[in-house]
Design a protein around this nucleic acid. Structure first.
Lengths: 206, 206, 206, 206
DNA sequence: AATGAATGAGCCTTCATTCAT
DNA sequence: AATGAATGAAGGCTCATTCAT
């Protein structure tokens, strides 16, 4: 995964139905390889083989290995972001926060290893900016923190970043430990966040 | 970084003074390459060159690339662990916790990129067990959480793991954002932990 | 450009007006790519794209990449050959020679890089025989050398070949150096030829 | 032969005797492949195989395929240049010119196909400047043309370039036609040059 | 006739590791 | 002990060509 010179954007969007299918297969193959064999086994030849397409087809849609990874990240992030975005409809900040945490937790526990690896690879230089705004998680978080029922933060920017990181890592760590109880996990993460924000967290009932 | 069949332990401990120096140079070269060029540029030939030794010599001390990485991780963890261990002398749980967080923060802000990369690579299968007990951070954390002035935890094991993860990620994220104010960061992390633990966090003075 | 098994002749002549146009576009696209990006960038997919046709269409007219190149060469040679052929009408050998050189020079300076590349690629095995007789340059030259006002040559075959080569390279080299003054170039080439032939060359007025 | 980004200079000079041998073998293998199979068959794997070394060894000395080609060109040019340089000792301009032509002819007829291909590939962008000054042929030519027994040239720069081109192409063309008589060829080329220069050429005895 | 998705042989290059000196 | 030349498996990517639609 050295070169990195080729663009990180897909070369072309599939239009014909057959191509749409091919494209989706390639992303899913990439996902499966990542979660079952890890990043070191992630190579374009293997992805193509697993997707049941030729290596040439893969390169018709993606200019390089990393672009494939980015497209997969975006697929995952978009999915999670859509779920999280419904938090805007929540009646108050607490509920919205709960919903956002819930979205992250559900997403993570759906395919834990894949989610964890994507979180890790997201830190690659150049990749981050391609992926970060797909789910507008950070932006949503900032809006939510500004709601009146949550304690005002002296540095809202840092608070949002901290919380995003906090959600991500707690959830990753739980996934890595094999936890599968979304409810329990969600409550703990929410408690940590509320504690961090300085809000009474009702931890007693945990 | 595929063939992880060779052992992850150093082949031999350097005994002669010159060998000790060589050994240290190799680790430091590895560290510098990691922090300046990233994991993708981290290869044995480059490490040897930067260390000013031949590739053959490198393989006299390390059975393979991954063992070199592990040794570096251990060097870093040991250093941080020694600092954290002094928390045992703290008068109460809060102070101990603060000291442990402080140790992590100081270590991270010392060489942020190196620390972040090591945290990431630590999750490699096989690597984790070689490294985790070098600094007894988790163990220390468990003891500290059991101190009487901190709220008792229903699942101390999970709590310790969560907190360790929490410290790591908040601090990594801060390092990645370029934060350099150890005091400020330390306070925020501590607030998150105490919030998580359900303890009044004195956030007011943040 | 390895598999030269397919024929070098176009698959079919375009008959419908639209097809004629398409065919011409493909040749022109090939020409433009050659002159602007060089032989290494010359590939069938790019030519098709630039010509605004599908790769499938290109292969309907040409059995392979090399056939496309040959067709382009023939287009260029035919054009130059027609100009040179009017030398037959010249009153004497000197004038005829001058006209032939002039044709080559004009052609070369019209699209220098294209002409140069074609000269180079013409030496490919198999290609040469397809292209050499399109412009009957060599034949014309032989006839011209036999005219009574030019010195008789002991080996007319070799002389014609030498002169053709001489014209080509001097003109290529001038094109590569960026010369654009056709008159000046023409005079120098003619001087070289007459010198080679052992004829007084009237260099004084050069 | 697309990428061309890697440097065109050898990665390192071989120092150990074994390495010197390896290096020479690689150049010779490259030469043999070029002359027997042409530029399209010239690839690094084949060169390594023919040289009896591994592909890895080839890349220890050359940063890429093109650098190998350049090194070969330099080997050939240097050899010819050394021969041509003795022309400085010639008593007059004519003799010097004759010697320079002789050097080119001898070199060309030694390995005609190799020499021809190198002349062609020399025009690659980036390659030219790496190779052109190895044999100082053009410089020598300029000095020689300035000698008092040769007719003064209005544009010595252009004249030298023309003559260099002329020598090269006549000699290439002869090699391509399979000529092997160096004497005969040399006389014809010299005649052409002297004619071009406007000097009485004694063509009569050709 | 035209399209363009798909193919896959083949080439370039890297880098972990070995071993003769 | 140290050296560094040599190895070769592995993987990224291109592009000429085919063929179902």
């Amino acid at each position: 995964m050295k070169p990195s010179s080729p663009s990180l954007r897909p070369r072309k969007k599939p239009v014909q139905p057959r191509a749409v299918e091919t494209y989706a297969w390639m992303l899913e193959a990439a996902a499966q390889i990542l979660e079952s064999q890890g990043i070191d086994a992630f190579n374009t030849n293997l992805v193509a083989e697993r997707a049941g397409v030729s290596i040439g087809s893969l390169y018709q849609y993606f200019p390089g290995k990393e672009a494939l990874l980015v497209a997969l990240m975006q697929r995952e992030k978009a999915c999670m972001g859509a779920d999280a975005a419904t938090a805007l409809a929540a009646p108050d900040g607490r509920a919205a926060l709960a919903h956002m945490v819930g979205a992250a937790v559900r997403h993570q526990l759906d395919r834990p290893e894949l989610a964890r690896l994507i979180d890790v690879e997201e830190t690659r230089p150049g990749v981050q900016q391609e992926v970060e705004n797909v789910s507008n998680y950070l932006g949503l978080l900032r809006s939510t923190l500004a709601r009146p029922d949550l304690p005002p933060q002296p540095d809202p920017e840092a608070a949002a970043a901290d919380i995003a990181a906090l959600v991500r890592l707690l959830v990753d760590a739980a996934g890595a430990r094999g936890e599968t109880d979304a409810q329990h996990l969600e409550r703990r993460v929410l408690a940590a966040i509320l504690g961090y924000l300085g809000a009474p967290s009702g931890i007693g009932d945990r």
